[in-house]
Design a protein around this nucleic acid. Structure first.
Ligand SMILES: [Mn+2]
Ligand SMILES: [Mn+2]
Ligand SMILES: [Zn+2]
Ligand SMILES: [Zn+2]
Lengths: 136, 136
DNA sequence: GTGTAAATGAGAAAGGTTTTCATTTATATT
DNA sequence: AATATAAATGAAAACCTTTCTCATTTACAC
């Protein structure tokens, strides 16, 4: 029951919030922009404002329900938070996104932050390239 | 002689271009936004349009004279290109930027891209944190 | 010096995201 | 079940960084 997820996050259970959650859970693509979510809802026949989609996604991010990717140049992309940190590979041709986890890199980042006297709060790593499909 | 740098890059030697180069070379902060450069020029008494600053920085990037950082949420930041690739640590309190090079991370990225069948074109890595000065 | 293509500045436009504000809705209280 | 109230919503305007347009100026080859 998704309503519980919302209540647990301290958010009122409203139709727009349930619908956005539903889209994120059922969409074929795991990584979606606000516009993607908005269009998916319209196609579903839902009446919702784009501003509400942005608001809800931002609230979900604050509540730890989704995480936001800040991709170079483009718009933000959101994905359901699954508790496991991972980084991303992005195809510059077809915009497909793949995920990866690399403990060696994670560890090196901690070491570097420590060496520089930084208390690390976050990091972002994107590898850009041409995916297998898009290589001529 | 900076004029040579411009000619070598196939760019006409114009006053705005020389001035932007001058700012980048003499500024106390190595990493500057277009707005930073623009304000520095105004304070210097130079007449220049913000659009020109953006244009010139983008041309410099194309010519390999500067590189552009795409920082989360904010504006782009530029720095003089020195030929050596490096990544960045950013203080979320004072916005100070530090640089680092880590061959282990570079190598792991290549391996990951290869494993996923990606022909890597670029990557961006930012470590966010609180710098030594900003830790209470 | 002249001619010509390129560069510039001002302001408009773009594009993604946030804000405003009047209206609607969820939830706690009768 | 009806009511009260604070929160959420939608539409449109505003925002903010960056790019574009176009008339004017400039650099550079001749
Ligand atoms: Mn992901
Ligand atoms: Mn740097
Ligand atoms: Zn692709
Ligand atoms: Zn700091």
């Amino acid at each position: 029951m998704e309503s519980q997820d919302l209540r647990k996050a301290g958010l009122k259970v409203t139709l727009p919030r349930l619908k956005v959650l539903e889209i994120l859970e059922s969409a074929q693509q795991r990584h979606m922009s606000a516009e993607d979510v908005y269009k998916a809802l319209l196609e579903m026949g839902e009446e919702i404002g784009l501003a509400t989609v942005y608001r809800v996604l931002t609230q979900f991010e604050g509540a730890g329900l989704v995480s936001r990717l800040s991709i170079e140049g483009g718009h933000a992309v959101f994905e359901l938070e699954d508790g496991t940190h991972h980084d991303h590979l992005l195809c510059v041709r077809c915009n497909q996104i793949e995920e990866f986890i690399d403990e060696v890199i994670e560890q090196r980042q901690r070491v570097i932050a420590a060496e520089k006297g930084f208390q690390m709060t976050d990091h972002s790593l994107y590898i850009y390239g041409i995916c297998r499909n898009c290589q001529s």
